[in-house]
């Protein structure tokens, strides 16, 4: 008892309360920002999911995916055939609309992650100070259990598509930032010198030498970001994001193994198709 008494030299530090206060303050103060973001983003996503994706007949969408898969994998039939069979299976199981919602979430979340992540990665590669500051932040963002991000997401954006995107943004952006930084730093010193020696400006060096050379590494980062977005989008169903994840969640709540399994398979199929397509984008252009 004497020992624990020693550890009790001050009362419990109110970290949890503090975080809550900060979050509440943020919610109240930036409501003018969060509310319109939520409003417009919801409109955009509903439009993409319900009007565009669900508006196109599934047969056509499946064929388009198959054609993309065929060309991007170097005119091989494997991935194209898998896409046709897999997507048809999801359709057959009655999960087409859920699939479209999930795809919308993944697309938007990854797109935002890339738009934010690549420039940050470039800045990070140019400044040692920024790298020193951002590295631990990125570690923190990636190791914090993904569920935790759902809580402030709800506080800021309520429930639905948008908090899902927000949580996924935090969770999935780090690989793009990290690998963009790494890719640019790995460009051979001689090539950078060559570019300087011929009188390149900073942006000429970036766009003509560094980014093209770093491209495969950056694409590997983007691939990871897309996959993490997918995993987060599934988790985000807990805060009302629609899609295949929501189906899994409701099966869990009703303990119905069968429907849960089918929805789970749907996610796996989507994951495989997205992964192979983005991976081939890396390789296809680099070689």
């Amino acid at each position: 008892m004497a020992n624990t008494g020693m550890l009790d030299f001050i009362p419990q530090i109110p970290v949890a309360e503090g975080t809550e206060t900060v979050t509440d303050w943020l919610t109240d103060t930036f409501a003018f920002l969060f509310d319109p973001i939520k409003e417009y983003l919801t409109i955009v996503m509903e439009f993409v999911a319900e009007t565009v994706l669900m508006g196109i007949p599934p047969v056509i969408l499946i064929l388009i995916t198959a054609v993309i898969a065929f060309f991007i994998s170097g005119k091989k039939f494997g991935l194209a055939a898998f896409s046709i069979v897999g997507l048809w299976f999801i359709y057959n199981q009655g999960h087409w609309d859920n699939l479209m919602n999930t795809v919308t979430l993944v697309l938007l979340a990854s797109l935002l992650s890339i738009i934010i992540g690549v420039p940050i990665g470039i800045l990070m590669s140019k400044s040692r100070v920024l790298e020193a500051i951002l590295s631990p932040v990125l570690d923190f963002m990636q190791t914090m259990p993904a569920f935790v991000y759902l809580i402030p997401a709800v506080a800021f954006f309520g429930i639905g598509y948008v908090p899902g995107v927000f949580a996924s943004l935090i969770f999935a952006t780090p690989p793009t930032v990290r690998l963009t930084n790494l890719g640019i730093r790995q460009v051979s010193k001689e090539l950078v010198e060559a570019s300087d020696a011929f009188g390149s400006t900073g942006s000429q060096k970036l766009f003509k030498v560094e980014l093209p050379m770093a491209r495969p590494t950056i694409m590997a980062g983007i691939n990871q970001t897309v996959m993490l977005s997918l995993s987060m989008v599934v988790i985000a169903s807990m805060i009302g994001a629609p899609g295949l994840g929501a189906e899994v969640l409701s099966s869990l709540q009703r303990a119905s193994v069968g429907t849960g399994f089918v929805a789970g398979i749907g996610i796996v199929i989507l994951a495989i198709i997205i992964d192979r397509i983005t991976q081939n984008m890396t390789r296809g252009k680099a070689s």
Partner: peptide, 13 residues
């Protein structure tokens, strides 16, 4: 001025 490098420093892309 122009520079020529030991390991050529050609742009592989």
């Amino acid at each position: 001025m122009s520079m020529v490098f030991q390991n050529f420093a050609l742009f592989p892309n």
